[in-house]
Design a protein around this nucleic acid. Structure first.
Lengths: 152, 152
DNA sequence: AGATAAGTGGTGAATTGTGGGTTGAATTCC
DNA sequence: GGAATTCAACCCACAATTCACCACTTATCT
C-alpha cells in the first residue's frame, strides 16, 4: 500500500518545559483532514521518536492485528511494539506533547532535530543525532546491496 | 474479523485495598456503547491478566467454539482458557475489581502496568513485567521470520 | 515597512487517578 | 435457621495532572 505522505527535510526546534514539541509547519500543511491533527508517537528502532499521522499508523496496526497471541514470539513482538505507541493530538499551535518515557528513550534534553522520512517523522535529540550520524555511516557493500532493491 | 479496538500504550497505576484497578481514560474513551463498560478478565498466557471489552471477548468465544472437544489439546486449552474468565463492570470512576485468583496468578502487589495490545488490555505487576522483559527478548532469527509475514 | 505566519511561553479550567464511606445483598459460620 | 461477616455497587471527595486556549516574540513574505 502506497503512503499518501512524503515528508522530507530537516528542521531544528526546542522542547519546552511542558514536553511540547512543534511540528514543522510544512509538514502540518501536508496532513490529510481525516487525520485531524492526530498522530501516533512511538519508539524508533534507533534512539529517536517516530511520529506517524494517524492514518499511516492504522495501516501498521492492520498488519499487526493479523498476528495471533498464541505464539510466544508474536506476543512479545506485539507487546514491545505497541506499548510505547500513543495516540496524541496537536494543539492549536501544532504542537505535540511527548511522554516522559519517550523523552528518556531518545535522550531528549532541549534542542531537537525533526527529520521527514517519507511516511513518518523522526524526532532526534540534537547531540544524539550527531553521534549517530558519525557512527552509522553506510559502507560500500551495503550500498551495493541497496542498489539491487532501490532504483535511485 | 478485524477488531474495532486498537488499544496501545503503557500506563502505570496502583491497585487499591479493595482490589480495584483503573483503566486508562484514553482506553475508556474508546469503548463502544454496546459494551456498556463491561469487560471480561481472564488469565493471560504470560503472567498477566488479559482484559477484553465484552464485544471482543464474544468474538473470541466464537473462535473457540470452532475447536472440537474430541482433541485432548483442544479440551485442555478450552478449559484453561475459559475457567478463569469472568465478566466484570467498571464503576463510575472507570475501575474494575479483580478477583483474588487473578491477582495471585499475576503476582500483583501494588504497582501495576497496563499495556494496550490492540484488541485486549494487559495488566502486569510492575516487577514481574520487568523480569519478563529481560527474559523475553526476540532473537534475530525470529525477527527475520516475522518480517516475512508483517510489513512494517 | 507592514502584514502575515510560525515558534515558544504561560494560565485557568476541566479531567483523571486515587482514596474512602455507606448500604444492601450474598456468603459463611455456629 | 439466624447471626456475623464479607463483598460488590454506588456514592462523594480531592489533589495532581492535563488540556484548551490566550499572548507574545521572532521570522517570513510581499
Amino acid at each position: 500500500m502506497r503512503s499518501q505522505y512524503t515528508f522530507t527535510g530537516q528542521y531544528d526546534f526546542v522542547i519546552d518545559s511542558k514536553n511540547r514539541i512543534n511540528i514543522p509547519s510544512i509538514f502540518r500543511k501536508q496532513l490529510h483532514k481525516s487525520d485531524k491533527n492526530r498522530f501516533v508517537i512511538t519508539r524508533g528502532i534507533d534512539r529517536c521518536i517516530w511520529v506517524y499521522p494517524l492514518g499511516e499508523w492504522e495501516k501498521i496496526e492492520k498488519e499487526l492485528s493479523q498476528l495471533s497471541s498464541l505464539s510466544r514470539t508474536n506476543r512479545t513482538f506485539l507487546r514491545n511494539h505497541l506499548r510505547h505507541a500513543k495516540i496524541v493530538s496537536s494543539d492549536d499551535q501544532g504542537r505535540l506533547i511527548l511522554t516522559k518515557s519517550l523523552i528518556e528513550y531518545a535522550n531528549i534534553l532541549k534542542d531537537i532535530t525533526i527529520i521527514g522520512v517519507l511516511n513518518k517523522i523522526e524526532i532526534w535529540d540534537n547531540a544524539t543525532l550527531e553521534i549517530s550520524d558519525s557512527e552509522q555511516s553506510i559502507d560500500e557493500e551495503s550500498y551495493e546491496e541497496l542498489s539491487k532493491r532501490v532504483n535511485i
